[in-house]
Design a protein around this nucleic acid. Sequence first.
DNA 1: TCCATGCATCGTCTTTTTACGATTGCCCTC
DNA 2: GAGGGCAATCGTAAAAAGACGATGCATGGA
Lengths: 114, 114
Amino acid sequence: MKEIEGLTREEERAAAVFRAMGNPARVRIVRELSLRRACATSDFVALLPLAQSTVSQHLKVLKDAGIIQGIIEGGDQCYCLEPETVRWLSLFTHGICCPDETDCGPDSCSGPEC
Amino acid sequence: MKEIEGLTREEERAAAVFRAMGNPARVRIVRELSLRRACATSDFVALLPLAQSTVSQHLKVLKDAGIIQGIIEGGDQCYCLEPETVRWLSLFTHGICCPDETDCGPDSCSGPEC
DNA sequence: TCCATGCATCGTCTTTTTACGATTGCCCTC
DNA sequence: GAGGGCAATCGTAAAAAGACGATGCATGGA
């Protein structure tokens, strides 16, 4: 992929995070973590119709993008969301929707006109 | 990419939209549209260090994902954001951030705990 | 200590994406 | 009707992503 000069740091980060989220298995993983707070790799292997190595690779992509993080819970390695990134993503996306409005919630914003 | 069964329609859509947004040039395009409301292909060709055919292809990816749409403005073909999709994306993303809270704005939500 | 278990990483193959030039198609204006 | 400008599409080459099995590496019982 060609590098785009003049891209803001925010936009670069956005592209990286969006790319990491741009796979059904990874969306599923993130969603699961959003609901269950923390899961081990084995949970995702059970959840997804993919080989263990593939799941592990997907987790790595999400981790490298800063979307999830590995933690130790009760002595076991498991994953959870990286709150800062998730929150940042939410704000960035909202910023596309409502570039001007500063005081509109997810339910009140009108979206971009055309 | 392998199909994941048991994926909700929402998650499939999310993966497709995220994937379409997962490229620096396309983030730049969407951002520009968010600020300028409507642009012709030539505007993007001027904006990005890419060949015309490549820019056109990027626009097609965004269009296929339902993120932008082609319109006629003053007799000229140009593009603008698809408000419904942008809004939906904002909500979906916010839903990852705050799966339970229904009444939190982008500035008030606390993000997922870990 | 030895084995099982759970994950990460490596090597490899296949598929998809990205980028470009060339071509085509469509209007506008002569 | 001829020529020019703009944008989509085609063909293709290079790069990246996705998937899997095999392998490596801790750790925690027997």
